[in-house]
Amino acid sequence: MSAYSNTKRDTCRAGAGVAKLWVLGTRRDTHTVHGSRSGPAAVHTHRWGTFVSSRTTRRIAAAVLAATAALGATALPATAADGDRQQARRSHVEISAVQYDSPGYDNGSNRSLNKEWVELTNTGRRAVNLEGWTLADEDGNTFTFRHYRLRGHESVRVHTGEGRDRDGHVFQDRDEYVWDNRSDTATLRNDHDRRIDRESWGRGHGGGHGGGHHRR
């Protein structure tokens, strides 16, 4: 009997008056087989269904419940952590270098701001559309990529200051520094907000200043 079968209790009586179960989907000619209280379980067959005894009913119900439980177990969705791990394995984009301390005196000029950057590299052969991807620091300052496609085996630097986006360089258009010279973390997420990569430096992250530059 398939899982398609639908059931409902019927109040009719057969022989000794055993409780019956209506099973949809069975097409048979109309006839009745009578049973006794001590004899075989009564079975009534009609054109659109079959009446079966309560003992058979319990067996069928148990089988349906077992099948439903098995389907539920196999249909459980993956957890968020599993999704992150799978996405990380599929993606070939990573944070390859960070210039978190702009060389020279930090005078806040646009030139100085643009010497602070994070570099992303596509280590795969196929291009990756970065539309909607984000790059953020520990304080939540976030840059969102717009209309940028990173070709295979190429890199792009995300500069802090203002500028015109071009191949290999995009700009956050900020007027102040983003990355902390002492300690910070750069986190890259895709357009589904799944973490792709993370790079940390400084105190609490197993390193010092390192000359203001961090490379994987």
Rank of each mutant, 00 (worst) to 15 (best):
E131D: 15
G104N: 10
T134K: 11
W48Y: 09
R47Y: 03
H153W: 06
L130F: 05
R89I: 09
P40S: 00
T30E: 15
L113H: 07
N129M: 07
A88M: 11
G124P: 01
R146P: 00
R151V: 02
G35C: 00
L120P: 09
W133H: 01
S53I: 04
A75Y: 03
R149Y: 01
R125P: 07
E119F: 05
G108V: 05
D101L: 12
G152I: 04
V23G: 04
A73C: 06
A81I: 11
S54Q: 08
C12S: 11
K20I: 10
G104A: 05
T144C: 10
I60D: 05
T32C: 01
D137I: 13
Y105V: 15
Y148M: 10
D84W: 00
V43M: 02
S102N: 03
A67H: 14
K115W: 13
A75W: 07
G72W: 03
W117C: 03
K115C: 02
A19D: 11
G132F: 04
A127H: 10
I60P: 04
T32Q: 09
T7S: 11
H92D: 10
V43C: 01
T68M: 11
Y100A: 00
I95V: 09
V52H: 03
E94T: 06
V23R: 11
Q87D: 09
I60T: 13
G152N: 06
R59Q: 14
R55K: 09
S112K: 13
R125T: 14
A88D: 09
L130G: 09
S53D: 10
A66V: 08
V52Q: 02
R125G: 11
G35T: 00
Q86K: 07
W48S: 12
G72K: 13
T68H: 14
L135F: 04
A63R: 09
R13G: 03
R59A: 12
L24D: 13
F145T: 02
R27L: 05
V98S: 02
A78W: 08
A73M: 07
R47F: 04
T144G: 10
G15W: 03
A81E: 14
E138D: 13
V98W: 01
S102P: 06
S54T: 02
Q87T: 14
K8T: 15
T134N: 05
G35Y: 08
H92Y: 02
A41C: 06
R37T: 10
Y105R: 15
G72E: 14
S91V: 00
S53V: 00
H147L: 07
A16I: 01
T45C: 12
N107H: 12
Y148A: 10
T123M: 04
G17Q: 07
G72F: 05
P103T: 09
N122R: 04
T7I: 14
A70G: 07
R125I: 06
Y100F: 14
T11K: 08
R146W: 06
D29L: 11
T142I: 00
T45P: 00
L150K: 03
F51Y: 15
D10R: 10
G17H: 06
F51I: 01
Q86E: 11
R126C: 09
N122Y: 08
T45H: 05
